[in-house]
Design a protein around this nucleic acid. Structure first.
Length: 272
DNA sequence: TGCATTTGACCTTT
DNA sequence: AAAGGTCAAATGCA
């Protein structure tokens, strides 16, 4: 049965979640594939263009579904209320949304998606860290982030990032990223693009809503192209406001660290 | 000096 | 009571 045609309350939500998960997986794939290619080759440009189109498509799908989702849910809520609904529909929705998830409490926060990634910070949004906790029995601490526009625009979106325990081969560091509550901040409020060009071996995506023409172009405040060997410059636009940067240099290095590129400057226990 | 991050304390939920 | 989430004072940095 077509999920969009069903009256199932979770229908739109599931589709949105899946599309968002798809986006996150595409980001991972992007980060893995691009470094392999010669950044100046036509092949790399073609791959880059394909990624841009995929992201553009998923953005449109999410936008459409979010509109449909909110209006649909509102209509169903109204319908239940008119019926007198002794059952609390909103609670029912919340219960449905929390079903099948092992998370402990999250005050009124709706779990959106979970992602396992090497690049927990390049998800297209700007975040501000507001806490860090050691979780019992976990090897690594969990960091808590909220949308950088939570204050300005009241965006409720938050996420948690926790490094996964090593699978034993030690080649790649993976992070569990959980997202809560949809962003309501407008893209106009986000300074784009916080995306940089791959100078040689990595091309991270960090902006979800950027226009295709601006993707992966790294320029300075005067529009000049910038190429810098330093790690920070590889992943941060030079004039990026400090309050919108998310990870420290060490965390960034850790997130992208691959065994063959290990730097002795990065302490092993930074996440421990 | 202002802003972001860190971190211990407090709050909420199970 | 324990565990996880959030707050807010302290700290660090530009």
């Amino acid at each position: 049965m077509n999920i969009l045609e069903s009256s199932n309350l979770g229908g739109y939500k599931e589709v949105i979640n899946e599309v968002e998960r798809q986006r996150a997986l595409m980001m991972n794939l992007h980060d893995l594939v691009l470094p392999i290619l010669d950044s100046h080759s036509g092949q790399a440009k073609l791959v880059q263009q394909l990624f841009e189109e995929v992201f553009s498509c998923s953005s449109k799908i999410i936008s459409s579904l979010e509109l449909g989702d909110s209006s649909e849910k509102q209509a169903i809520l109204t319908k239940y209320k008119r019926k007198g609904g002794e059952n609390n529909v909103e609670n029912h929705i919340l219960l449905e949304e929390n079903k099948g998830r092992g998370n402990k409490r999250r005050k009124n926060a709706k779990h959106i998606s979970s992602v396992v990634t090497q690049a927990p910070h390049f998800d297209g949004y700007q975040w501000r860290k507001y806490g860090q906790k050691w979780i019992s029995k976990a090897k690594h601490s969990r960091s808590y982030y909220r949308c950088a526009y939570s204050k300005e625009q009241g965006c409720p979106s938050t996420k948690t990032v926790q490094q996964k325990e090593s699978d034993g081969n030690g080649t790649v560091r993976l992070f569990d990223v959980d997202y809560y509550d949809q962003h309501i901040c407008s893209s106009d409020g986000i300074v784009h693009p916080y995306v940089v060009e791959a100078t040689h071996d990595s091309v991270p995506i960090s902006s979800q809503n950027q226009s295709s023409s601006s993707m992966f172009v790294n320029t300075d405040a005067h529009g000049h192209r910038v190429q810098d060997e330093s790690f920070e410059s590889l992943f941060m636009v030079p004039d990026m406001p400090g309050h919108l940067t998310e990870f420290t240099d060490v965390e960034m290095a850790s997130a992208f660290e691959i065994t063959s590129m290990n730097s002795p400057l990065i302490p092993e226990d930074i996440w421990a």
